[in-house]
Nucleic acid binder design. Structure first.
Lengths: 250, 250
DNA sequence: CGCCCTCTTGAAATTGTTCAATAGAGGTGG
DNA sequence: CCACCTCTATTGAACAATTTCAAGAGGGCG
């Protein structure tokens, strides 16, 4: 999906032994420089690869549920994941969508604080939590990277609180589309048209709206010629500047 | 305010030199075990104390503003701080209230992602960011602690998104009061009546409501005999179980 | 080709907001 | 110590945004 980004293509890479069967695919990983593995050299990378399992997650399948023992952490390598929390009566708040390069499963309790489910077909790297923790004490760089990731997520969460608490439906949808565009751009995808793989319900649960309001607002933006709804869940951001104006500085 | 909690009261503490003038007050710090300094022994603590400045923050005064260079991080030792983000037109979202023991200023950009202001008179420990970072590489325990704190804040932020996106005014207020009670309890205060030092506007900006709705909802809960509004911004939680029921698992 | 699920659209209902006025609390100065 | 003044909180009524309830349209998959 994303373009390959071999970020150590110089001639100095040491000869890393490739194990037979499940040989470390990490050195060819296209999103390596986006994620937790970024600060590691090839040798360290191999140690990381030794504790990792590659898993595939069909669309709509749960990765884990809130309250389960948090035995693993994950790194998304392809696809879209949603994470959410539920109220006792079933109301749902999607707290984030995760894409290739994103890390997930951070928890300082021994149980997950939220549920995670594949939106599209996903590929992930799965790390046993315990082993990653061991590895972190050996490679403080990884811990630093994780703190960095956490700080980032915190800033994103605060931005989302601003959206949820203070923005109108129109502003929320505009912000959402721009966020998707920004994330796609980070992964090296074109940003004139955005892929919106999640359902209206998921979007509503992310933005604190109902499906109907999401739908109506899309229609409204479409009629104002700010966006175009294309086939294959693609949305063209025809008037990016105008959208940014509506979104309120995001 | 909170009870003293000297957590290393054994007989093995080494003789720590106390500098003359601004001698490390840390060893008598009542919230030490709640915060970033918790994992340090007395010697390490002294090194920490060497880079710290104690500051006092009168009510209503800004600590820093969003977008300013993030040169310092802080630790609240007394009082209440609010942190918030603004939209271009002035709408405000309070993303958190901070109390004694709370850490603030985490940012991986070089500027603050939010503004911070004293609600009540506050005392804080101020660390130069650069120096704390140096210290972290020397004491990985501190970095671990910070990652822990960040993970915690992340879980709190997700809970808040659930509140902002999916709870009714009544549920929001109930959750808010229970949160204050829980935080007060953590600091070792009684939890039958809660101190609510912030204005209705601040509460509204925290919960995604208007002042009027906050006020009306307080009145409504009061009339239902779930709370009592006492003098000095104290609120008695008369029917804790009922409130928890309304709050929806918080 | 048709069925099912999601998305869209419409109309009524509701929650929370906005605008406006009153009440109350805390602080100041006479 | 009290009166006054100002700021904050409360209350009321009209309004607006979003939700809810309901029905129809579209699209993808077997």
């Amino acid at each position: 999906m994303a373009a390959f980004d071999i970020n150590h293509a110089g001639g100095l890479a040491p000869a890393v032994p490739r194990e037979g069967a499940g040989a470390s695919p990490c050195s060819a990983c296209s999103i390596r420089n986006l994620t937790i593995c970024a600060p590691l050299n090839d040798i360290e990378q191999t140690q990381m690869a030794a504790i990792v399992t590659n898993i595939e997650q069909p669309p709509g399948t749960p990765l884990f549920d809130e309250g389960e023992p948090a035995d693993h952490v994950f790194n998304v390598t392809a696809g879209t994941i949603k994470v959410y929390k539920l109220l006792p009566d079933g109301r749902r708040q999607v707290t984030g969508f995760l894409f290739a390069g994103d890390f997930l499963g951070l928890a300082n309790q021994d149980t997950y604080a939220y549920s995670a489910e594949a939106v599209t077909a996903c590929h992930l790297c799965r790390f046993p939590r315990r082993k990653l923790e061991d590895l972190m004490t050996r490679f403080p760089k990884v811990e630093q990277r994780l703190l960095n990731i956490a700080s980032n997520e915190l800033a994103v969460a605060q931005e989302q609180m601003l959206l949820l608490g203070r923005k109108t439906a129109r502003e929320k949808i505009a912000s959402f589309l721009l966020l998707l565009a920004k994330r796609a751009q980070q992964r090296g995808q074109k940003d004139d048209s955005v892929s919106v793989p999640m359902s209206r319900t998921d979007i509503g649960d992310y933005l604190g709206l109902t499906t109907e309001t999401v739908s109506r607002t899309f229609t409204q933006l479409k009629k104002a010629n700010l966006i175009r709804l294309l086939p294959n869940s693609q949305v063209e951001l025809s008037q990016r500047a105008e959208l940014e104006d509506i979104a309120g500085g995001f």
